[in-house]
Amino acid sequence: MKKIILRGRKVAGGCAEGEALVTKDTISGWGGIDAMKGTITERRHELKDQSFKDKVLVFPGMKGSSGTSMAFHATRLMSTAPKALIFNDMTTKAALSAVLLHAPAITELDKNPLEVIKTGDWVKVDADNGIVEITRK
């Protein structure tokens, strides 16, 4: 099995691993996810109706309403949250969601994670050291 290592900046600390769910579409918390189910609900989103529960969510960034952080905060309280976040573009929504998820999160990676990581890859996120380890099945 091939391993790939990426390095980036810690957004929120911790270490977690899981299966990757990758999207090229930005994610909106309020009106974009169902926190009770842990699914994407936005009408024209490529992951519509897919679950991010216990996944390592790999995405460009978070957009939309200020309700985003609360929606992700709620996924933690409902146990439908992703295990870790990997993203490219920093916004207040992404930063605050990461803090409230109490999950490891990394940004500013040395290669574009949307191109390197594929849905289904096994991904280990060590946010404290800024390391992402990818294992392709």
Partner: peptide, 8 residues
Amino acid sequence: NIEGMESA
């Protein structure tokens, strides 16, 4: 910025 409920 667009703040969240928690940060505001």
